[in-house]
Simulated assay, not measured.
Amino acid sequence: MREQAHTLPSGTLTAQRRRVRTGSGGFGRHFLVAALLPAIILVVWQWAGSTGRVSPLLLPSPLAIGEAFVRLSLSGELFIQLWHSLVRASTGVFYGSLAALLLGGIVGLSRTVRKLVDPSLQLLRLTPSLATAPIIILWFGFGETSKIVIIGFGAFFPLYMSMVQSILGVDSKLTEVTRVLAFGRGKQLTRLVLPAALPGILSGLRLSIAYGWLGLVVAELLGSQSGIGYLMSHAQTNSQPEVIFVGVIIFAVMGKLIDLFVVTIERRLLRWRDSFTGN
Results as ranks from 00 to 15, higher is better:
Ile209Pro: 02
Thr12Trp: 15
Arg21Lys: 09
Ala89Trp: 06
Leu270Ala: 05
Gln240Phe: 12
Ala131Cys: 10
Leu8Ala: 15
Leu63Phe: 11
Ile244Trp: 08
Val113Glu: 11
Leu194Cys: 08
Leu214His: 07
Ser75Arg: 14
Ile265Val: 15
Arg268Glu: 12
Gly25Tyr: 13
Phe183Pro: 00
Val246Gln: 03
Leu32Asp: 10
Gln4Glu: 12
Gln188Val: 03
Ile41Cys: 14
Arg271Asn: 09
Ala196Tyr: 06
Asn238Ala: 15
Leu74Glu: 06
Ile148Val: 15
Pro199Phe: 10
Ile80Tyr: 06
Leu63Arg: 08
Ile65Thr: 02
Gly28His: 01
Arg18Cys: 06
Tyr211Trp: 13
Phe31Ile: 07
Ile228Ser: 01
Ile249Asn: 10
Val193Thr: 04
Gly23Ala: 09
Arg21His: 11
Arg53Leu: 10
Gly11Cys: 03
Thr190Tyr: 13
Arg114Thr: 06
Ile265Cys: 09
Val117Ala: 01
Ile167Gln: 02
Ile148Lys: 01
Ile265Pro: 04
Ile201Pro: 00
Pro38Tyr: 05
Val117Pro: 01
Ala133Cys: 04
Leu63Asp: 07
Tyr211Met: 15
Val43Ile: 13
Glu67Gly: 06
Trp47His: 10
Gly52Glu: 09
Thr91Ser: 09
Ala235Gln: 01
Ser24Glu: 09
Ile258Gln: 03
Gln225Ile: 04
Ser50Cys: 02
Ala100Cys: 11
Arg71Lys: 10
Met232Cys: 04
Leu8Trp: 15
Ser85Pro: 01
Ser120Glu: 11
Ser85Ile: 02
Leu102Gln: 02
Gly26Ile: 10
Gly212Asn: 14
Asp171Cys: 03
Ala133His: 00
Arg206Gln: 02
Val54Arg: 00
Ser10Gln: 15
Pro56Cys: 13
Ser239Tyr: 14
Leu126Met: 12
Glu144Asp: 08
